[in-house]
Simulated scan of single mutants.
Amino acid sequence: MQIFPKDNICLAQVCQSKNEAITLAGQILVRNHYVVNAYVEDMLLREADVSTYIGNNVAIPHGLVTSEDKILASGISLVQVPAGVEFDGERVYLVFGIAGKNNEHLAILGKIAQVCSDLRNIELLSHTQSKDEILTLFQEVI
């Protein structure tokens, strides 16, 4: 199973709240069989405890330390919000949902952070209408 296939990308979304954006990112993971539905609740619980905003208009919501049994396979989802959604006073345009089986989430986080550290990539990812263009950016790291 691919970690980040085209079906895991949702472009041009409008989200009224960070919880709505996190839920959408989690539902993509559920729909594509990376996690069970209860994992989405864990993503929301994690966000209530600690913000998953990482800078550069990017958030990476994920589950709790105790979520391992709710993860079926490692995967990444991406929700693009071109108008942005507020995460604790910060504007977020890219919401990456992640699920890492066997502690793979740290490596996945690092790979996303690597791509998102370049502001040119953020600009492209925030506004492209091409899933293929997004996957091209990530093909070397994921």
Rank of each mutant, 00 (worst) to 15 (best):
Q2G: 01
I3F: 07
F4V: 04
P5N: 01
D7Y: 05
I9S: 08
C10K: 11
A12P: 02
Q13L: 09
V14R: 12
Q16S: 14
Q16A: 15
K18S: 09
I22F: 01
Q27N: 15
Q27P: 10
R31I: 05
N32F: 09
Y34F: 09
V36H: 05
Y39D: 00
V40K: 00
D42N: 12
L45N: 13
E47C: 07
D49V: 09
Y53E: 11
Y53L: 01
I54N: 06
I54E: 04
N57I: 00
N57Y: 11
G63N: 00
G63K: 02
G63D: 01
S67V: 06
E68R: 09
I71T: 02
A73S: 14
G75I: 01
S77L: 00
Q80L: 04
E86Y: 05
E86N: 14
E86I: 01
F87W: 07
E90G: 06
E90K: 14
E90A: 14
R91A: 10
V92N: 02
V92C: 08
L94R: 03
L94Y: 00
V95F: 02
F96A: 03
K101N: 07
N103D: 13
L106Q: 06
A107H: 10
I108P: 04
I108F: 03
L109K: 02
L109D: 01
G110L: 08
K111A: 07
I112G: 05
I112W: 03
A113S: 15
A113H: 02
Q114V: 03
S117M: 14
S117V: 02
D118P: 09
L119Y: 09
R120V: 13
N121E: 08
I122D: 06
L124R: 06
L124P: 10
H127E: 05
S130G: 06
D132N: 12
E133S: 13
L135Y: 04
T136V: 12
T136Q: 10
F138H: 07
E140H: 13
